[in-house]
Amino acid sequence: MSIARDLRELISYRELVTVFARREIRARYRHSLLGAGWAVALPVGLTLIFTFVFARIAPVDTGAVPYPIFAYIGLLPWQLHANILNGSVRSLIDNRSLVISVYFAREVLPLSRVGSACFDFAVGATVLVGLMAWYGVAPGPGLLLVPLVLCAQVSFGAGLALFAAGGNLLYRDVQYVLQVVITMWMFGSAVVYPIPETGWFIWLKYVNPITPMLDAYRGLIVGGRWGFDPPFYVACGISLLTLVLGWLWFRRVERRFGELA
């Protein structure tokens, strides 16, 4: 079966994913003033802005959780999502000379951008530890379930990354369309404010996998929750489906990359 063969081939290139991800990370951090600081600059900056807006100007109710922590737990995974999409959409174009001159499983390029986005996420997570210590907020036992949420989020991101990278090679304006989509998506995902309990928004939880994922992060880390609610399971299903379809589609269009790049 050719799908099995392609999958085996992809797995045989797993080392190259880490090599490329490391290349990205090293090249980015070695020659920049802030070094690893870039990974946290954006979520920290956004947290400061939204803290000013939602804690001072138009206060929102975040329960017992201090707003900066509430916002940061939303912004850090959101930034991971945005970085995965922004990074992967150009991954094939940026490595055009490789795509037209060397053969390897092309999935490696978008997937390595997913990897480097995860690295930034890990760096950003250290700030969260500091932030929680500062406010004296202790994590609940739900913290142990966070890796599952991360897994679901990364599968979703990886599936979209394959669509975005392949799509941008076929149609070069996909990257610009994606910019607009990401900006609108952020405001439709309840990143910096609590999910409304009533109204049409509750349906969005079932359609937009990011919303229940952010909700799960918050509930598990600082909300004292243990376990998941139905929208999260739907999100997991959508994520898995996105990953499978993304890969099947990518491997179909991949045959033409050498001519299109």
Binding site: L16, F20, A27, L98
Partner: peptide
């Protein structure tokens, strides 16, 4: 084709070899 200009020769040997 896979060389990264910012990285050292050594790093690039490992990257290019992997490619």
């Amino acid at each position: 084709a896979g060389f990264h200009p910012m990285l050292t020769g050594r790093d690039n040997v490992f990257i290019n070899g992997a490619i």
